[in-house]
Write a protein that binds this DNA or RNA. Structure first.
Lengths: 201, 201, 201, 201
DNA sequence: GAATAAACGAGACGGTACGTCTCGTCTTATG
DNA sequence: CATAAGACGAGACGTACCGTCTCGTTTATTC
C-alpha cells in the first residue's frame, strides 16, 4: 500500500518538527518521469532518481516502499489531465472514440509505463493489486458508464456480462501493446469496436 | 538469438572434441522448470539453476545468453506435448474448445511462465521478439487454421481481419491473466467466444 | 595508490553523511592478517576476508582496489610496533643487532607476508612500487641512519656507496628468504655483517 | 616433479600407437617463451599456450603438471647456451666478470622469467624446490668452483662460509631485481664484488 | 529564545546476483 | 593409442543495485 505523498490528507494540528518537503516529493516524481522516458523500470535505479531529483535515497525510501510505487505515483500524477469519457449519444461512437484515445495514450510514454507496471506486477503481486486499484479500476469505472448508457438506450443487447465485453474491447489493445505482435492505431481501434458490436457470424 | 540445444539440427559428420552433454542440457531445463514453479523468473537465479542441476554456471552461460532464454527453452521443451487444434466441423465449437484448453493451460504453471516472459520482455525487447517468434507465432498459426476453415464453411463473415479477431479472442484471456482483474475459467472462455461470434448489438 | 584508512589525516570538519566505520576497517585488516597466517596471498580470497570480517565484499572493494593492498595495509598496521633502530656506539654492533632482529622478523609470519608482497609485485608493478614506498623505504631510511653514524665515527670507510652496502647486508637475507636455499638465523646474520665489515680478502 | 619432455631419453624400440610428438613439445616451449616476453607468468594462460603452439591443453597437462613447470622447462631450454664460468687466474676478476654477465642476463627477458619463478614459488613450495634444484643449484655449483680456485690461490681468506659469501654477491642483485629499488648494471656489479672483497672497515 | 522533534542531504554499509575468467579434468573423433 | 578440439565443474573475480543505517544540518513547533 503506497504511502505516497499524493494521498496525504492534511490534519490541521501540525506536528512539531520540520514539515515534509513538498518540493522534494515533486522533484522525485518529476525525476522518475524523466528517467522512465529513457529506460524501463528495471533500468531506473533509486540512486538515479535520488541524484536527478536532488532528494536523498533515504528520503525516497521513507515515503515510498520501493521504486515501483514511486513510478506508479509519478505515472498517476502525470495523468491527472483526465481522459474525458465521451458521451455522444451512441455507444458505438463512444467506445470507438474512447478506444482511439486509449490507443493514442498507450502508444506514447504512458503505454511504456503501463507495460512496466504490468511487468513489475508479475514478480510483485502486491504491486499488481495496487496497480489494479489505483489505475485499472478507475478506467474500468468510466467504461462501465458508457456501457450502461448503451444498454439503457437499447443499443447493446441485455443480459451480457459487461466485464467480459469490456475486456473484449481493451484486452486486444493491451495484448498487442505488451507482446508487440501487431499494429496499434486508430484503424485497429475502430475495427476492434466494430467487430465487437457486430460479431463475426 | 538462443543457441539453446533445442535448436540443434544434427549434421551427421560430428565435430571433433567432446560432445555437448545432453544430460547437462536436460538437467538445466528440468531444474529451471522446477524453480519456475516456486518463484517468478526474477527470483530464479543462475546460481540456483546451476546448483539444482549440477551443471556449472559457466556451462549455462556458454549455451544460453541469460536465464530468461534458459527458461524459455525449458518452457518450450515442456510444451512439446502439443495442444492439438480441435477440428469439430464448427468454428464456434473449435474456438470454444480451444480457448477452454488455452485457459486451462494458462491457469496452471504454463500461465505463470507465460506472464514471466511477457514481463521479462518489457525490459528486454530482443527477448520479447524471441518469445513472439518461438511461442506466440506457432500458437497463432494454429488458430489461423481454425479461422480459415470457419471462413471456408461460411460460418464466419468474409472480409474480417483475422488478426484482430484472434486478438479479440485471446486478448481478454491474456489481459486477465496478466492483470488479474477478473476470473478465468471455462465459463469465461465460452462467454468470450460466444460474444465474439454474436456481437453485442 | 592505496585509499586505505591508515592514511586518513583527520580534518576536524567532518564530512556529511555516515562516517566510515572504523570497526569495519579494523575487522577487515584483522581478518586478513589471520588468513595470511594460514595461506599465501593467492589463497586468501576477498570472499573469505568478507566472511571472516563480517564486512561485505562491496565495502572492501570500495576502500581498497584489490586484496593485495588490503593485505599490505594489514601488514603495515600490524607492524606499528616499531622495530627500534639500535644505537650502541658501534656500527658493527648496530648492524649485527639489527640484522638479527630483521632475521627474527622475517622468520615469522612477517617474513611470509613479505614474500607474498614481493611475489604479488612481480605481476603488478604498481603494487610493487607501492610496497617499496610504504615498506622498504622506511626500513631503508633507518638503516641509512646507522650507516651515517658509522661513517661519522670513522668505523666505516668513506667513499662507499651506502645503497650497495645496505643491499649487501639485506640482500642475502631476502634472497634466502625467497629462494629458501640456505638457513636463516642469528648465526648467519652475524656472519653476513662480519663478512661485509671485514671483506673476504 | 617435472615430467617435462626435456628429460625424455628416447628408447629406440618404438612403442605401438601414435608416437609422442617432439614437435608438439618444442612448440609448447617456444610458445611459452614468446608469451613470457609479453606478460608475467600469471598472465600466461594454459589456453594461450595451447592456442599459440597448436598443441591441445590436454596434451600439455599430460606432460607437465601445470603451466609454471612448462615455463620452467622453456626457461631452462632457452638457456642451454651455457654462460661459461670465467677462469682468469684471479678470483676478483672471475667474480666481477661473472656477476657482470649475470646482471646482463637478469636485465633481459631471463631476469623477468627468474622473478616470475620466484613469485610462483611463494605460493607453491614444491615448485620453489624444483626451481632451486633445476636452476639455482647448477648456478651455485659453478660459483663454488670460482670460489675454490680463489681459496686455493690464497686470494680469499680461509675459514669463510662460502655459501654466505656467494649470497653476499648474488643476494643484492636478486634483491634489486625483485624489488626494483636500485639500479642494476655493470658499475653496480663491480662495486658489489669489490666491496665484498675489501670489506667496509 | 531555548528545547525539542521531525525531515532531510550525504553517503557508508550488508546482502545478493550478476556475468566473466582460469584452472585442470574429461570425452570424443581423428591420425 | 597419442593427439586436437573443446565441453565441463569448480570457484574466485570485481560490479551493480537494493534497501537500511548513521551522521550532522535544517526547519518548524512548543515550552
Amino acid at each position: 500500500m503506497s504511502l505516497g505523498p499524493a494521498q496525504a490528507e492534511l490534519p490541521p494540528p501540525r506536528r512539531p518538527g520540520r514539515q515534509r518537503s513538498l518540493a522534494a516529493q515533486a522533484a522525485v516524481l518529476d525525476a522518475t518521469c524523466r528517467l522512465m522516458e529513457h529506460t524501463c523500470l528495471r533500468g531506473v535505479t533509486t540512486e538515479a532518481i535520488a541524484q536527478l531529483s536532488g532528494v536523498s535515497k533515504a528520503t525516497i525510501y521513507k515515503w515510498w516502499p520501493n521504486k515501483a510505487q514511486v513510478a506508479l505515483d509519478a505515472f498517476l500524477a502525470s495523468m491527472d489531465r483526465d481522459v474525458p469519457t465521451p458521451d455522444t449519444g451512441s455507444a458505438l461512437a463512444d467506445f470507438t472514440a474512447q478506444l482511439k484515445s486509449v490507443v493514442g495514450f498507450y502508444t506514447g510514454p504512458g503505454g511504456r509505463a503501463f507495460c512496466q507496471f504490468i511487468a513489475e506486477g508479475q514478480s510483485d503481486p502486491a504491486f499488481l493489486a495496487l496497480f489494479r486499484e489505483r489505475f485499472l479500476q478507475s478506467r474500468r469505472q468510466e467504461a462501465r458508464g458508457m456501457w450502461r448508457r448503451g444498454v439503457a438506450r437499447g443499443e447493446i443487447r441485455a443480459g451480457l456480462d459487461s466485464e467480459i465485453v469490456l475486456d473484449l474491447i481493451y484486452g486486444p489493445v493491451i495484448f498487442r501493446l505488451l507482446a508487440g505482435h501487431g499494429p496499434l492505431d486508430d484503424r485497429e481501434a475502430e475495427a476492434i469496436v466494430a467487430t465487437v458490436f457486430s460479431g463475426i457470424r
